[in-house]
Amino acid sequence: HEITLHINGRRVKLRFRDEKAAEILKEAAKKGLDEEELKKLAEELWR
């Protein structure tokens, strides 16, 4: 699955395995994680 989040006016595509991962990524984006941090988090969730 993929999700596209808008971060600092940019579109960031993240891959994720399940809905739980999608929710975690959305929450992290709301908390203000930047693009690099979100990509790292997405990679961690993928494993």
Rank of each mutant, 00 (worst) to 15 (best):
H1T: 08
H1R: 10
H1D: 10
H1P: 05
E2I: 10
E2K: 05
E2C: 11
E2P: 02
E2V: 12
E2L: 10
E2R: 04
I3F: 05
I3V: 08
T4I: 15
T4L: 09
L5P: 00
L5N: 01
L5H: 01
H6V: 15
H6A: 08
H6G: 05
I7S: 05
I7L: 07
I7H: 03
I7P: 03
I7G: 02
N8A: 08
N8G: 08
N8E: 08
N8K: 08
G9K: 02
R10F: 05
R10S: 09
R10Q: 11
R10G: 07
R10W: 02
R11I: 15
R11Q: 15
R11G: 14
R11A: 15
V12W: 01
V12T: 03
V12R: 01
V12M: 03
V12H: 02
V12L: 08
K13H: 11
K13T: 15
K13V: 15
K13A: 06
K13Q: 11
K13F: 03
K13E: 07
K13N: 09
K13D: 08
L14E: 00
L14I: 09
L14G: 00
L14F: 06
R15C: 08
R15A: 04
R15P: 12
F16T: 15
F16M: 06
F16K: 03
F16S: 09
R17S: 08
R17E: 04
R17C: 06
D18M: 02
D18G: 09
E19K: 08
E19S: 11
E19Y: 09
E19P: 12
K20A: 14
K20L: 12
A21M: 07
A21W: 03
A21P: 02
A21D: 15
A21N: 08
A22N: 04
A22R: 15
A22Y: 11
E23D: 11
E23Q: 12
E23T: 13
E23C: 07
I24P: 01
I24G: 03
I24W: 04
I24L: 12
I24Y: 07
L25Y: 03
L25T: 01
L25S: 00
K26V: 12
K26Q: 11
K26H: 10
K26E: 07
E27A: 12
E27N: 09
E27G: 08
E27D: 12
E27T: 08
A28K: 06
A28E: 07
A28L: 07
A28R: 05
A28N: 06
A29C: 09
A29P: 01
A29V: 10
A29I: 11
K30M: 13
K30P: 01
K31V: 11
K31S: 13
K31A: 15
K31E: 14
K31L: 12
K31M: 15
K31T: 12
G32P: 04
G32T: 04
G32N: 06
G32V: 04
L33D: 05
L33S: 09
L33E: 05
D34V: 10
D34K: 09
D34I: 11
D34R: 10
D34T: 14
E35K: 06
E35F: 11
E36I: 10
E36M: 13
E37M: 14
L38I: 13
L38G: 00
L38S: 01
K39F: 12
K39A: 08
K39M: 14
K39E: 07
K39G: 07
K40S: 12
K40Q: 14
K40G: 08
L41T: 02
L41V: 05
L41S: 01
L41G: 00
L41I: 09
A42G: 05
A42K: 00
A42C: 05
A42T: 03
A42S: 07
A42D: 01
E43R: 05
E43M: 06
E43A: 07
E44C: 08
L45T: 02
L45W: 03
L45I: 05
L45S: 03
L45Y: 03
W46Y: 06
R47A: 15
R47Y: 15
R47C: 10
R47M: 14
